[in-house]
Design a protein around this nucleic acid. Structure first.
Ligand SMILES: [Mn+2]
Ligand SMILES: [Mn+2]
Ligand SMILES: [Zn+2]
Ligand SMILES: [Zn+2]
Lengths: 140, 140
DNA sequence: CCTTTAATTTGTAATCATTACAATATGATA
DNA sequence: TATCATATTGTAATGATTACAAATTAAAGG
């Protein structure tokens, strides 16, 4: 837990139990959860937690580069505490979001056509390996 | 206009005045408009047009691969009738979405890690050249 | 320890994009 | 021209996110 305290302090963010819990959740659940998923799971052990706090905290963490906000689904934001540059795959069957570790010459770009680049997102959409296998079994 | 009639027929989509107008709008406005922008602009000359029709039509066009739905902004879908594979840049100042014609070895991928890829989206976010110039002028 | 203060948390209400639905209208086909 | 499946329309509902104001609390200093 001390780890998360240091992360907050290093970023001049006030240390609160809520923020520590959210940081820990993101660090230990690399499933790209939604704000609501984080809220629901933490609510059990933190009954007073407010959903607004989850949204506010995620926004702060994003602004300080501590999490990465994914807009791959179009209907809801997904949050990633793996801030190493990497791409993502969204399965249109099971909705899982999977890390794609693929060679990409553009992931570290800081400028293109005179535009200053702050973030790079590589999104792939389709059917994941697991769901492909499922649908093949069904055709036996 | 015959051009759009043919596109619809070729895709087994019933030809309606609303669909023709929406197709034409997308073809002549390569600004990645939102559904609401399309609706507001067409409403002037088509007073009976319903926003639901715009959403329905865009969904049909997307399903038939006639438009590309961008989720770069996170808060609203943007639509692109340029279905040539290309990447996009979102300016966090002016909110414009700009085509990025950049060499990318992953844009034509159909499989990765056993996952079947149907769509590839390359999203860059930052400050566009025009807004960068603006902010430099302000600092004179 | 106390005090102070600015920042955070909380609950609720509001917003905004999108979807559901049912009644009406209309393209396509014969 | 009759038929019918499909499209359009208006309105209501949904769901994620944000706005807001009151209550709470972390951090800093004495
Ligand atoms: Mn990830
Ligand atoms: Mn484009
Ligand atoms: Zn899947
Ligand atoms: Zn700009």
């Amino acid at each position: 837990m001390e780890k998360y305290v240091q992360i907050l302090k290093k970023n001049c963010l006030k240390v609160t139990p809520q923020r520590l819990e959210i940081l820990k959740y993101l660090d230990t659940h690399r499933t790209h959860p939604t704000a609501d998923t984080i809220y629901s799971n933490l609510k059990n052990n933190n009954p007073s937690l407010s959903k607004t706090t989850v949204y506010n905290t995620l926004q702060h963490l994003d602004e300080h580069g501590l999490v990465y906000t994914l807009t791959i689904s179009g209907s809801e934001s997904r949050f990633d505490s793996n801030i190493n540059p990497h791409h993502h795959f969204l399965c249109k069957i099971c909705s899982n979001i999977i890390d794609i570790d693929i060679e990409c010459p553009n992931v570290k770009k800081v400028e293109v056509g005179g535009h200053r680049i702050d973030e790079v997102h590589g999104y792939f959409k389709g059917v994941c390996a697991s769901c492909l296998k499922e649908s093949n079994n069904g055709e036996d």
